[in-house]
């Protein structure tokens, strides 16, 4: 019996968690206060099965084809893709900077790993984001507990494996507390090789 708002259809393959897609777009000249961020972010759909995911995903624009300053977010249902959300408050994220042209493929691989529960870190994963920017695109994966080093290392190592990253790829971690403090997602990160 499915007690959630969205349930897998008959004969479909259920996901471990329901996931919600969000989309946001910002005019770079405007300050990114948390209020304007919340106003700019839109929930676009929730999926409960592998088949529902593909039906939804196939209708979305590929992130690499988006222009300007925009983001796709895929988060567990009930978790807002905001630093202030209860599930994110003590968390942080791994960041991978991509040169232009790679975002669509890497985004698909990271979300397939998340939907398929490849990270093996219990309830720790909150969601994933692809951020389209002018010079580069950025992939991030958010987890609940930023000071749990065993978890964050495992997420980093899984990312390397599922994205097939070269061993010398620079990985950066930033706690949401630090993001809140300097009001920036991707500045002043901690570099890990």
């Amino acid at each position: 019996v499915c007690l959630q708002t969205v349930c897998p259809g008959a004969g479909e393959h259920p996901l471990q968690y329901n996931y919600t897609f969000w989309y946001s777009r910002r005019t770079p000249s405007r300050p990114a206060s948390s209020q304007s961020y919340e106003q700019n972010i839109r929930q676009i759909g929730t999926v409960a099965s592998v088949e529902q995911f593909w039906r939804f995903y196939s209708h979305l624009v590929r992130p690499g084809d988006l222009s300007g300053h925009s983001d796709f977010h895929l988060f567990k249902e009930g978790i807002k893709p905001m630093w202030e959300d209860e599930s994110n408050r003590s968390g942080g994220k791994w960041i991978i900077r991509l040169r232009k042209g790679l975002a669509s493929r890497f985004w698909e691989n990271i979300i397939l790993a998340m939907l398929g529960e490849q990270f093996m870190v219990g309830e720790e994963i909150c969601g994933a984001v692809v951020s389209i920017r002018f010079q580069e695109d950025i992939l991030s994966i958010w987890n609940r507990t930023s000071n749990d080093q065993m978890t964050t290392s495992r997420i980093r190592d899984t990312l390397r494996r599922v994205l097939n990253l070269p061993t010398n790829t620079i990985m950066e971690y930033k706690t949401h507390n630090d993001s809140l403090r300097d009001n920036s997602s991707f500045r002043n990160t901690k570099i890990s090789l």
């Binding site: 259809g9 004969g11 592998v50 398929g116 529960e117």
Partner: peptide, 21 residues
Amino acid sequence: GTRIIYDRKFLLECRSSPVTK
């Protein structure tokens, strides 16, 4: 409880062969 784990290959196969009801 049991975790529902899918590898990339399986997920991609589900894309090309959707469930028929």
